[in-house]
Design a binder for these strands. Sequence first.
DNA 1: CTTGACCTGTGACCATACTCCATAGTTTAT
DNA 2: ATAAACTATGGAGTATGGTCACAGGTCAAG
Lengths: 130, 130
Amino acid sequence: MKISELAKHAQVKVDTIRYYEKRQLLPTPKRTHSGYRIYANSDLKRLLFIVQAKGLGFTLEEIRQLLCLQSGKTDCVQVRNIAKRKSAEIALRIERLSQIKYILDALADQCEQQEDDECPILKSLENSNE
Amino acid sequence: MKISELAKHAQVKVDTIRYYEKRQLLPTPKRTHSGYRIYANSDLKRLLFIVQAKGLGFTLEEIRQLLCLQSGKTDCVQVRNIAKRKSAEIALRIERLSQIKYILDALADQCEQQEDDECPILKSLENSNE
DNA sequence: CTTGACCTGTGACCATACTCCATAGTTTAT
DNA sequence: ATAAACTATGGAGTATGGTCACAGGTCAAG
């Protein structure tokens, strides 16, 4: 697969792929004799993961770390620690998103009942900031 | 409350508060006769919400929209639609984060058992990209 | 009534994450 | 065999979200 094909499958620009390579999120790919980058299916999967994680608000650096956990490039104890820490971070994130979702749903409901005086958004946060 | 006090309570810089004001995330505050910004508790709550939402990966523009739902600045039908759309977006986000968390937990477990050949990160994404 | 901490606005600067451009070599379709 | 389409590199430019510096006004304490 050449770079433009990879780009199309992942819905990103060619430049973005080269940028991710420079930032070490994608491995340095094989090249044709003339220097064109050649990608495999595993590269597409990796790229799709990056795109998805980015959509979830992770920085490229965080994503790089997540992807690093894979390859035996880090020793077991470190992997376990990083994985556990990230997992806890994500759990907190999920909790907070659930809170906001709850508020939005309440807002939509309330709105359906034409009572538009009160703001549940700030209200429900009054007692909930860690 | 003066700006530096507000900044301290929310753990952000004074400049950031002025920036949020310019970006319309915070209302233009009252001023003392000499021009100093004066903030109330409600401003602190709003600011804390902004900080939290930012940590969850929302852009300032998205946060502005969320905060707009509050004030009767949008009509009921619009509020309901936006709230429902955002709620659905967040649900998807929660789902994906749960997926990544699951992978990380699996990775930590697996690591505990010293079997470090396989990468569950990419593996478990093989069949799950929307 | 001065000293020092705090406030003001404006504008320059920074990091992240792209995105585009110029120039040049490669491949492909006619 | 030649134009159109693709690829390469390097470097500049953009958008977002701040952050800092400067010059000057304000206020409370000694």
